[in-house]
Nucleic acid binder design. Structure first.
Lengths: 212, 212, 212, 212
DNA sequence: TATGAATGAGATTTCATTCAT
DNA sequence: TATGAATGAAATCTCATTCAT
């Protein structure tokens, strides 16, 4: 068997391979504690090559965030917009599942990294704000509004603050990274509970139905 | 013998002064980016002295967290236990105010620091878990249960997951540190909205009351 | 067989093209701060090709020096030897002009590079010493001596140190690279002044002429 | 005998010790090729300490230049201004000696370093221009003018370009660093020759004296 | 010939921690 | 107690050079 070739020459794949490795390292140790060398080792690449594709460590970090964030939001948008289900059914079905999965996905890492490093990178948070927060909120808002229009829901503050649905997701993510080893939390149940409470609050009561 | 000269600080104050200075520095730059020297400068103390009281930078960090966390929880416990108000009135009154204040208090900093550094310090998160999470949850749970016992509230998942009330607090804290400069968020309204929705969900409806 | 296509450069030109590009880069940033990559870019050539012609960066440097130095000296030699003018007329005419031009020519760059890198490359300075210094001095010496023989000039230390004529050239070169932006210097006048003073010193005075 | 103490605690001397060491290293290898580590080793100091006193390597370099330049110029100024000698006697005596010594002094190194690094550090050359070039020229100019006023000298371009006297000094410095090992040059004689020629040119001739 | 992706040694700089005073 | 000069390990980043293609 031949020795490992020193050169591999795969220009197109390299940036992704490196970003992937960086994601893993960052998610384990956080940005500051991750050494560029470790990323290189994981990617099976020399330091020089990493710096060929990413001007600085910070650059690499931004690339990690951007790479893993956009697909998620797009998936959500697509799911909501293409679904024929009525609002409540959609929320209790695909939407709940998506939120529950978020907690165990890479989103967890990205959220933690953002919380940590965000304040130092205004351009990154601006990007995130526009592409994730704004679009995500808009899409959820549209869904709630559709329900109100349908008479599935009564008007409520949720129309203004659709992100309330994500409160337990954030709690879960933080919990998992901090307390999971000390105390279990059934994040699926937590997220479902919030959805349930909120739906109970915004669904017309019998009295209202009668009145209407 | 004369009294101690006033310009000479009493040594017992030193650790607190240092912790206080460290809090400020950590909250501005985060743990990794804070230099011990800066903490010393702010505290008006030499490096040697700091290392007399705190074995390592990490040690200092833990002290910061512990110092600012316990009083908060104690205040909450006291407020809940000593209040004569019925559950809903308490939630809509003092409790809401307390949650809203949390967002602008030092809690914000502590939460961010914990998220960042927590994973590296299991003992710290264990401590936090026991003293803040567990006690805080217990106290909120007792409050909800009291409301249920009173027939103010119907049974709900909130009894199992009282932390759902804090979802919007966490959202607010994260928002403030990341997105505030790009997009405003009325955190008071957000927190109030969640409380309102949840109360709507767990208060007996007319129908239920009649039935019951 | 058809003629070689014109868009394909003939390989014999490549080394010169590279040396030319290197000259430009070296003269802008100095040897150490010039990256081989930049030379390649300027020459429109890949790194591999550069290293085909020049074993190392140092090698390239030496080639630059040699390439631009020899023609200059040859021009001077030719000018002096083929000129029918008497010594003073030659000095005040073509020689002065040549010196003045030197300051703005590539010689400036070469001199700076030599001063910087020379000490590290004894073989290069040896080459330079033999081909530029020795020959240049000899040629100027011959000129002065001719003037003395003619009775245009009286004997003087200039016969031993003809390089004194170049003092202001060196001053000008250094000045231009260091101080020009802060303080202007009329280098043409400076060089002319030295020539004038020296000629005044070595031309026979009336008294001497009479005596003689 | 005890082991070498790790700490020496000589705050006041350190910057000078380090600058001195840096001077030696820079003068041997030039700025770019000198490693900070080498300077530290020579100074018997850790890298951290060097960076306590000098923010960057460049900073250290500037300090080297400034430290060795000012005393020289001050010495020249003092010598000229306090001397009772007539102009020619001063030039042939103390001034000649000073120029000759310059070649073998640290000035040689400083000049080489300046030529090499100057173009990259406009602030440094500005400083040098003001403190060395301007003041040096002014002081030489005053000397020449005094001689003209005295009728020791006739008016000449030397009044405008006193730096012509330094031409052979520059030649000598460059020669020593580049060609000395290949070909000897009697720099003392070279400098004296220039002075002699120039004086011959600017002293009144017999004819002129008679006429006048 | 010709390319340019890939290497890796080595440079500068930072900062938590120590300890002579 | 109290100081802050001094340490040195370790991190990021650069660039001359190589070699599979």
């Amino acid at each position: 068997m031949p020795t490992k070739p020193r050169f591999r020459r795969r220009k197109e794949d390299r940036p992704n391979e490196i970003t992937e490795a960086a994601f893993v390292e960052f998610s384990r140790k956080g940005y500051a504690a991750t050494r560029v060398t470790d990323v290189c080792k994981r990617a099976g690449v020399s330091k020089g090559l990493l710096y060929l594709y990413f001007k600085t460590k910070e650059d690499l970090f931004k690339s990690v965030i951007r790479n893993f964030v956009v697909p998620q939001v797009d998936a959500l948008k697509l799911a909501i917009e293409s679904s024929p289900l009525p609002a409540e059914a959609f929320l209790r079905g695909p939407f709940l599942k998506l939120m529950q999965e978020l907690v165990n996905s890479r989103a967890q890492t990205v959220i933690r990294l953002l919380i940590v490093e965000g304040p130092k990178h205004p351009d990154l948070t601006a990007y995130y704000c526009d592409h994730v927060i704004a679009e995500g909120s808009a899409v959820m808002q549209k869904l709630i509004n559709k329900g109100v229009a349908n008479r599935e829901f009564v008007p409520s503050a949720l129309q203004e603050f659709p992100q309330l649905l994500l409160g337990p997701v954030l709690i879960s993510v933080v919990w998992k990274s901090l307390f999971e080893r000390h105390r279990a939390l059934d994040t699926d149940a937590l997220i479902a509970a919030q959805l349930d409470l909120v739906l109970k609050a915004i669904k017309p009561t019998h009295a209202q139905e009668v009145t209407a």
